[in-house]
Nucleic acid binder design. Structure first.
Lengths: 211, 211, 211, 211
DNA sequence: CATGAATGAGCCTTCATTCAT
DNA sequence: TATGAATGAAGGCTCATTCAT
């Protein structure tokens, strides 16, 4: 016979599991049919649970998307952070390789499941002022992250001393966004890779012809 | 007494005027409350007309947003095309100045009415597969436009011979998008200008330190 | 130059003409799309007039159907009354022929334009208590008409003395209705004629086998 | 405490009950105010339920009338079939009595609730091409039923050998219809009975005077 | 705790009718 | 007089949310 704590923790585990499942199902529904096109019933049906159950785990329809976002961000950040400390590069070449690594990791995660960018860029917008603010916050975080790399490069001397770190970080992230959007259009890996290459080329060499 | 043609054209003028007003009011509503947050009644009320009147001018709610977009695109294109033929620049310096002019024009129109980018980037997404395709189409057009400038530069020799025109065009547009998004966050002109400057700097000089 | 009365009467003539046209167009619309399926605009469009004009000739949508019915009844009665005075038959044979004539006339008018029975039996019902009463009135009139023939036959001695004139008249009209309904089902003349023959056979000979 | 099956069957029972109630209420509303005059809200209000509940049980407004008809047909058929097998009569006298029994049963059910014929003949028409077809189908079924009796009589020899069974069946049903319509006009039982008697008289003896 | 029946606010859309031109 | 622009009552339907079981 099991102890009370075991039983409890089992119940808790099940509860946490279902919570996860609801988040995942919501993610799928939102990404595929849009936030407004998704009903609570759709989410519940996908899981084979009663739709009343949804409300035992989340406040309301608006509530769930926050958690879906949390989850996505965690996934993306997790896959990027590995082996990519901002201070890992000590020379332009190392930075180049680092950028390539990050680029590949991003490409991998986004191409792996296009519903991720789809949800972030298309379905999570226009729902709510609060949510919009949150998306802006994500952009900020991303810009800070990128800025961190740039700052390190400037400090180390392999990036331009007069680099406007913040502005450049935003510009770079914009280019990444462009590549992500492109990946959404059904283009295959090569297409995205070529844009990624163009971006790196632009970053490191600019566009002007060498005199 | 007026002639028949005058009367006709007066009625037509009134009709065209109201049509315009409905488009404008819809634009405002959609930009402020979102597409799903806007009811036909809201649009009508804003104009002080009966909501039935709306349906004399547009098929349905879905219909109007197409026209709002048409209108926006026309406005933006109109303000950009002036004095900015893709083949107007014959040297890097001229191109630099051209880019600056375009940048200023964009900044002007977007800062002038932040609801424009807000509608385009946040409220027009996630409504419809058709509409999404249309937005993609706009991105394509923009990329072609940018690509045209780049190609001219390569042909003239002031841009890198080996430039991946298409990819670079997309990257550049991504940066512009980033600036636009930044303009949405309540930053004032200086902020946006500084990002614009960083973009230009990145474009022309890249980020690496001159050896 | 014309005199005032001429002008007026011309105007009046035109007015009466349009009134007729509206009735006809309404008949067509109601018969084809049903009363509820027909909008005032449909009627006006069919005539190429403004739909506001409708209201200069008729009170409202409900009003017009009364006039459409008036028109139909006049048409049917007109085509039946000719050569079919209730007292025209003096023997069973003459009555038989008279019944056949009436039967043919009815068949002719109803098969000629199936929209007539369609409107009367399907589209004019269920609109209004008043209209229903009016349809009942038409049935009464028809029963009285039929009853007139029967009474004459009884008086003349070629129909059963103990005939329940009123009840039988209704029964006969019911059979006519059945034939009319049958004509509505896309059956051709032969079908309807065969039912008409069965009706006459039933009327004159009953169904039982001669002992 | 109840077992699971009990609970389930209780819920199912409640559900079936409400479904029935909605059909009944719809029947009442349609019969009293007409199909187009009835709103879903009317039906719901009559039952004291929310109008959203209606849509848990039926697809849409058009859907319910089919079920109302199903119900009516079942009721009518049920009350007729009893003790009235088409092959129960072996002589004219027996057939006469059978006809009388059927006549009485019909009279009973229709006079009992005049809304039944009212709905069938007045409110169910002109709604829909599909529904019209269905009504025609009912007429067909009725004609086949009547035809069955006739055929049996011809086979047994107590009805005319040369009887046009199909046509006569339709004629007879037309007379029944006439009686039903009469019953709708607020006439009491005697009136209807007298028409029924006239019909039987016509059926068996025809109208002509015995020579 | 899970369920799903019930609810009603809310929204889009139609169309008969009015009335200024 | 003819017109059609404007109107808003009316109604069908959806779906997020609640709550009794």
């Amino acid at each position: 016979m099991m102890s009370v704590t075991d039983t409890l923790s089992r119940a808790e585990r099940k509860r946490a599991e279902l919570r996860r499942d609801i988040i995942d199902a919501s993610f799928s529904c939102f990404a595929e049919q849009g936030y407004h096109g998704t009903g609570i019933a759709d989410i519940a049906t996908r899981l084979g649970i009663g739709h009343g159950t949804f409300y035992r785990y989340f406040e309301n329809k608006r509530d769930i998307i926050d958690h879906v976002l949390d989850d996505l961000v965690a996934r993306i950040v997790g896959s990027l952070v590995t082996d990519n400390a901002p201070d890992a590069a000590d020379s332009l070449d190392e930075y180049r390789r680092q950028v390539e690594r990050i680029s590949d990791a991003l490409t991998a995660i986004l191409l792996d499941d296009p519903r991720i960018p789809r949800l972030l860029l298309f379905e999570a917008t226009g729902i709510d002022a609060d949510l919009t603010q949150r998306l802006f916050g994500l952009l900020d975080t991303a810009a800070e992250l990128t800025g961190g790399y740039l700052k390190h490069g400037v400090d180390r001397g392999y990036l331009r001393e007069n680099l406007d770190i913040e502005g450049t970080a935003q510009a770079i992230n914009g280019m990444i966004l462009a590549a992500v959007v492109r990946s959404l259009r059904g283009h295959d890996k090569e297409d995205v890779d070529s844009v990624a290459a163009a971006i790196r080329s632009l970053m490191f060499d600019g566009i002007k012809s060498p005199e």
